[in-house]
Amino acid sequence: MSDLHHDPANITNPEHHDHHIVGPSTYLVIYGTLLALTAITVAAAYVEMGALNPIVAVLIAVIKATVVILWFMHMKYQSKLLKLTIGAGVFTFLVLIAMTLSDYMSRAWGLW
């Protein structure tokens, strides 16, 4: 690590965010939100909405997962690199679902 090859100005990640500490009051609000959403999703399952039932259930699950990722997993306070990373993961998962389903559906056309 001689100074010849070492540029101190270049070692700080420009993406660096100072370590953000999320406090108990925020966590309590998130905890309450998640419990409330659980109650809502159970209640919604008992309401007959036909094809809408699965959609509502998955939608509420997506909201809950987003809340967990943003606050419990601190994504809200992370660098763009990490935000892009989790975004890439979700995107790849959606590609898995979309491409596989479109293949199955087009092979049994009219049976879906």
């Binding site: 659980t38 999703t41 039932n53 699965p54 259930a57 998955v58 997962a65 967990v68």
Partner: peptide, 19 residues
Amino acid sequence: FVDIVWIFLFPLLYLIDLG
């Protein structure tokens, strides 16, 4: 993350076909 997996398992396995 393990929490999130369950958040999806619960509605998919238990709830969506209730009606």
